[in-house]
Design a protein around this nucleic acid. Structure first.
Lengths: 346, 346
DNA sequence: CTGAAAGCGCTTACAG
DNA sequence: CTGAAAGCGCTTACAG
């Protein structure tokens, strides 16, 4: 279906500050002052200029402003995966903090692709944004050096490797794994399985080590098996479940490093007549939207995405506004346990 | 937890085109030509300039470029809700088409807030982006006129009201409702319920009317009840289900205008011992991620988000690149039915 | 094919 | 408190 209509032939053009000045009967510089330092302008002049701006529908040309001022008002945020609610929460947190601070926040989605991540770093670099918040892939942090060399401020969020030469906000992944394992032991489970996850992902490794520590510290007679998987998707969870069913050796508690993985496990197990949590308690990770919507609402470990975004923006603004006194720092936030029916029946 | 390290005292500054020119031993204009019209420059000069760019790590100042050229290379996309996978798909589609065309795509999330939508329109307007793709709220399209008056190209996606004075890409919502109702009748259901949704949402109304038409055209002896709800969330689905259970008059087929709503209905019904789809078949709308992950995978109506984003960007580029010949048009895409176990048991 | 120069729309010392 | 003017880093006719 298509309905057509000719485009307007009048390519309207935005009025400039000069137009405003002329209309208000003041100089160009005065208009600029009204916009940027109204406190040094008389009330009468402000009113006249404001009226002219209104009448003309003037909007500042940000390219010219950035160029003349040598700095921009906008901040860029590069997310790994906008399909993952953690990153959406980060974006919301950063957006809130940015708008409080009078800054605009622009988003980019690297879509778990290293090349896109690099390309967006360059785009924000070319745009001379005031700063960049990057949720980097495990794959590499090379681009970070590149843009920093140009004087661009950058803070890392969610993952930072071992970099201490820029600010970062991360979550204590190890503690998340610890929380999950402790919860399973608290409800009396003794044969635990850490199920799934590529072994080259930092977060997966840390969560597994956290689970190991929990078992070591606290579990006498508690075992912890590990079965890795190619990815974090639900199909991997299903295939691990089938493997367990075939072997006939079910654990009584499963920790999955992602909700999707846990969902696959739960479906395949319940389809086979295994009771969750009766026979096997399952806990996921991430607190994705569907974790609470599932038929068996899922216990999980939640990461404070909103706070991560807020803190990241706060660190960035400090770096932007106090370049001299700024100290790079790493903020580590704690994940939290969310108990639902996949581990504790009501 | 916090670890500190002093910031570098050397606020590195990006080299300018002038620096590149000096280093390459050519004029400023020649460097610009190498970047923008390499075909008119000799291979030798290109090589020299390229080397200088490399050595210096030069990145173009996009603010200066936009200002001098009078146009920008980036396109802005304003989404209603990045938490909704439809919009994520739209973003992915637009991103793909943009990068193919050598354009950068910047995202903004209006977060279902009219004020944010307006504010991001202004931000993109101030940034003098080449064009804007807006997924507008039902609430109002005023901002559209404002930015168009400044010569900004804009195309609407997902909702366009009755505007024909700009391009738009929408989905045939009426047809989606028709598909869902037809499916329920196809599997033999005769007492249908259109459950939930605020009556002032265009999409909800259209989907309901589509269901009505399907019943009218095809159903002899088929009834269609309607129960509205305050919002599209899962709690609303639960409360509608409780109402049905209290009344003791269950339909045998339910159409919900959102997956979340359907999820709430399904949970409350199955908790009460009602079989889905045995006693009641339930179909949702949107094909959100959790629709397939649910314990009873959900039948639903899927919207072609990726294609919507692609088409929207294509229309926008046509408007940008051919301002003289461009014809505004509305592209209407079809939704599709996805059958899962909430309507058809295996 | 290359260079010199005007100009894009602002900001910001500097005078007054 | 206000204005005149230089300059931000590019692009783009225009000469040569």
């Amino acid at each position: 279906m298509t309905a057509a209509q000719p485009a307007s032939d009048d390519p309207a053009v935005a009025p400039s500050m000069n137009d405003v000045a002329r209309r208000a009967g003041v100089s160009l510089g005065t208009v600029s002052h009204v916009l940027n330092k109204p406190e040094i302008v008389s009330a009468k002049t402000i009113a006249r200029v404001a009226a002219a701006i209104d009448e003309l529908g003037f909007v500042r040309n940000d390219a010219a402003r950035s160029l003349a001022a040598g700095r921009s008002n906008t901040v860029g945020l590069i997310l790994t995966d906008v399909g993952n609610s953690l990153f959406v929460d980060i974006a919301r947190g950063a957006e809130g903090a940015a708008s409080t601070a009078g800054r605009s926040l622009l988003l980019a989605n690297s879509d778990v692709t290293f090349q896109k991540q690099e390309s967006y770093l360059d785009i924000f670099d070319e745009a001379r944004v005031a700063g960049i918040i990057l949720a980097p892939l495990d794959a590499g942090l090379d681009g970070v050096d590149r843009v920093r060399r140009h004087g661009r401020n950058i803070v890392l969020v969610n993952y930072a490797g071992d970099r201490t030469d820029c600010c970062s906000v991360v979550v204590d992944e190890e503690h998340g794994g610890y929380l999950a394992a402790t919860h399973l032991m608290d409800i009396g489970r003794t044969r635990l399985l850490f199920a799934g996850g590529p072994e080259d992902l930092h977060a997966v490794n840390a969560r597994r080590e956290g689970a190991r520590r929990a078992v070591r510290e606290r579990g006498n007679g508690v075992s912890l098996d590990v079965i890795p998987s190619r990815n974090l998707k639900s199909a991997s969870g299903r295939s691990i479940a089938r493997q367990l069913l075939d072997d006939g050796t079910l654990p009584d508690g499963i920790l999955a490093p992602a909700d999707q993985l846990a969902a696959g496990l739960i479906h395949e197990l319940t389809d086979a007549g295994v009771s969750v949590p009766g026979d096997v308690a399952v806990i996921g990770y991430d607190n994705n939207q569907f974790a609470s919507e599932a038929a068996i609402p899922m216990s999980t470990v939640s990461q404070p995405g909103h706070e991560m975004g807020e803190e990241a923006l706060r660190l960035l603004l400090d770096e932007i506004d106090n370049p001299r006194n700024h100290q790079h720092r790493r903020i580590t936030l704690d994940p939290s346990l969310i108990v639902r029916r996949s581990t504790v029946s009501r």
